[in-house]
Amino acid sequence: METLLAPLEYAFFQKGLLVAALSGALLGFIGVYIVLRGMSYIGHGLSHSIFGGFAAVQLFAAQFYFLGAALWGIASALAINGVTRRTRIGADAAIGVITTASFALGVALFARFGTSGPAFENALFGSILGITTAQILALVAVSIVAVVFVVARYRALLFATFDPEVAEVSGVRVGRLEALFMVVLSLAILATLTVIGVTLVAAMLVIPAVVARMLTDSFARMLVLSTVIGTGCGVVGMYLSYFAGVPSGTMIVLTGAACFVVVLALTGGRGLRRSAGLDAHPAAVA
């Protein structure tokens, strides 16, 4: 117990633990929709895209990097949403081009001009060092926005996730709902970027939700379980990161992966059957 309490004597660890727990919870919560819509690749692409904005804004206004990157992220999210709904070329190819180009831009800007905000490696892999009160407040605010959005639009989101075409016919404005969801997703990625890291955020959007899906056949329980699992991975991963002396994002994701393996072993065929078809989402028939 003393070993667990010892790191809490440090203010940076207290902040880090809080942010990691909140980040895990937020990504786990939103991740349910990502996984059930087969959007894992969009989450992955969006996090990389936001990195470009993160780097670019620091050149002009480092103190407003969160706001600038948020605008960049929202623009990317809406572009990706538009591409997936309307493009004639493959959505995965289009997303690949848009987001990797943005990521490459971020790397180039960091390499050429350096940074006056969070360090390059920290942005990529996460770090518990230097977390500010403003970042914590931003994460709390985004979490509240995400919860209010999901609770208020629970039924519409469920319908649009399960069967978007019939949802549209039944009066749900699916396009607007998906655009709003992408905005919330981009804000969530940005708010958790400091602790989890750009390259690993996508994993935390997917792992808790997949593990939760293996444990339950209920959508509502899946939302709760995924949030709890995400929180647990954040807390455990943060401790492991502290003791192992490695970036926080890596240990949070590895904790999630270990959780996946344990649940897979415990649920066996039933868990696999439940999680089967997560990449199969409703498609229009011409």
């Binding site: 996730t161 399960f162 069967d163 019939v166 749900v172 899946m222």
Partner: peptide, 30 residues
Amino acid sequence: SYVPQLETINWNFPVTVAECVLMSRAQGRW
């Protein structure tokens, strides 16, 4: 109302029959 082809649906989606039917009452419900 529209009844789609069964083949277009992911039948592994985590909902019960009652939850699926209730989806019709999604519009304007908060």
